[in-house]
Structure formats: structure tokens, C-alpha cells
């Protein structure tokens, strides 16, 4: 069976949605200097989900916060759809974060005083969309996550899995092109975690670029590529292969 994201590999690659060039981040200085990242190069193309793995302290989360413009590198560049966000004005950066980048964190970060639909609509409203239009889009995003029944519930009236799916709806609303997920399956049971990964995968198959930071091999396996970090450097990565190379027979014929 043809899988939607397989096409990506063999077509000439489209321009990357995210490009990290020689990215470095040093905390402190002198004797207390800590090199969180040391010259990372990474490109993520439309349709591609890249998992980042590595021991704690290897720089995984730093990479994600820099890629999302939530922190500033001490060296190198971060290009989001061709714009260097390390030299962008605050205003440009804020607009990019509202429109192009979706974030999913382990602790959901939903606003407790807002309903699910209001949480999802928030980034659109902040970006100047009318409340009515924002609600329509928010309801569509919840529908996509199979959660329309939660629209008017508050976060404390939902399970962890539901909260995380609402957080993903918020991260994806308004057709963001870059999705950054930091241990999005953290506190979830394995079935719910898998459904969260399925949503990220589906959005990338539909054309978004995604980075998934995780320490769970089973969830990293949903990615097209897995990048291994150690001590702030990329030490290895997997490349995509065709399933037929592993299991003969049935896989190819379906």
C-alpha cells in the first residue's frame, strides 16, 4: 500500500520549513560555561517528522526552544520558511510564532480559565482573527482531533489524554507549517500516547514539518528520521528505508 509520506523521499526535496545552521548555545561564561549545543546542522522538509533522541542533558530541549524562537542562540542561524529568526525583529518573531509554529509541551500548557475551544482559538485571536472566525476554526481543529464534544469543557474537566489532544489542536490550528513537540506523550498511557503520535504523523503527512523530542523509542519510531544527540552534538541519525528491505513478501504486495 502506498503510504502518503513515502513520496517525499524520492521527489526532489522542497525547500525546508526549518533549517538549523551551525546552531550553538552556551550558557554562562568562563569556568562555568556550559555548551548545550555545539554547531548543529539540521533541515526539516515539508511532510517530514524528525525525532530527536539522546540522554538527558544532551541538548534535545535546547534544540527545540531555539528552533521555535523561544530562546536565542549564541551562534549559528535558525531559518523558518527562509526567515532567519535569530535576526528577525521582535514583532516579526511574534507573528511567526503565532502563525507558522505550533508548540506541544509535555505539560499541555492549557489556560485553566478558558474552555477547550477558547484555548484553541487563542493564537488566532492574538493574531487578529475575529472571535467568531477563530471559534469556527477552533471547532474544526477539535473535530480533526475527534474531540468536538470537549469544546466547552475546561481543562480540569478533561483527562490528561484529552488535554494533550486539545493542546495539539491548538498547536495545529490555522494550518501551521512547523510543529515542535517536546515529550508530548510524557504523562500519557501508551495507547493515548500512540494516538497523539498518530495525530502528529497525520499532520506531517498532510505537509507540515515536525520535530519530536522524545526518550521513548516506540514513539520516535513514528518519525521519518531519528537524530541522536550527545553532549550537544549530532552523533548519528537514521535514514529512511523501504519496509520491504526488512520484511519480505507481504509488505511489498499490499
Amino acid at each position: 500500500m502506498h503510504h502518503p509520506h513515502q513520496a517525499q523521499v524520492f521527489d526532489p526535496p522542497a525547500a525546508p520549513v526549518l533549517e538549523l545552521q551551525q546552531l550553538s548555545r552556551v550558557h554562562g561564561s568562563g569556568a562555568t560555561e556550559v555548551h548545550a549545543l555545539r554547531g548543529i546542522d539540521l533541515a526539516v522538509h515539508p511532510g517530514e517528522l524528525v525525532a530527536v533522541m539522546g540522554p538527558s542533558g544532551s541538548g534535545k530541549s535546547t534544540l527545540l526552544t531555539l528552533a521555535g524562537g523561544l530562546d536565542t542562540p549564541t551562534g549559528g542561524r535558525v531559518l523558518v520558511e527562509g526567515t532567519d529568526i535569530t535576526t528577525a525583529s521582535r514583532k516579526q518573531l511574534a507573528a511567526l510564532r503565532r502563525r507558522s509554529i505550533g508548540y506541544v509541551f509535555q505539560d499541555y500548557n492549557l489556560i485553566p480559565a478558558l474552555t477547550a475551544a477558547e484555548n484553541v482559538a487563542l493564537p488566532l485571536e492574538l493574531d487578529g482573527t475575529s472571535a467568531r472566525k477563530a471559534r469556527v476554526q477552533a471547532l474544526a481543529a477539535l473535530e480533526e482531533m475527534n474531540l468536538p464534544q470537549l469544546a466547552d469543557r475546561f481543562p480540569d474537566e478533561m483527562s490528561g489524554g484529552q488535554q494533550q489532544r486539545v493542546a495539539i489542536a491548538r498547536a495545529l490550528v490555522g494550518n501551521r507549517r512547523l510543529v515542535l513537540a517536546d515529550e508530548p506523550t510524557g504523562a500519557l498511557d501508551s495507547e493515548t500516547g500512540e494516538s497523539v503520535l498518530g495525530l502528529l504523523r497525520a499532520r506531517c503527512d498532510a505537509g507540515a514539518a515536525g520535530i519530536l523530542v522524545t526518550h521513548e523509542p516506540r514513539f520516535a519510531a513514528w518519525a521519518d528520521r531519528v537524530v541522536f544527540l550527545r553532549d550537544g552534538r549530532v552523533v548519528d541519525e537514521t535514514l529512511r528505508t523501504e519496509p520491504d528491505s526488512l520484511l519480505s513478501g507481504r509488505a511489498g504486495g499490499r
Binding site: H3, P217, A220, A223, T238, L247, A251
Partner: peptide, 16 residues
């Protein structure tokens, strides 16, 4: 790397 790559392949087959 080889183990994770095998997992990626199995996971893709599982999605199918």
C-alpha cells in the same frame, strides 16, 4: 541506530 531504524520500519508497517 539500527534498532531504531528497524522500529521505524515496523511502525510504518503497523500503520499500514
Amino acid at each position: 541506530a539500527a534498532t531504531i531504524r528497524a522500529m521505524q520500519d515496523y511502525t510504518r508497517l503497523k500503520a499500514q
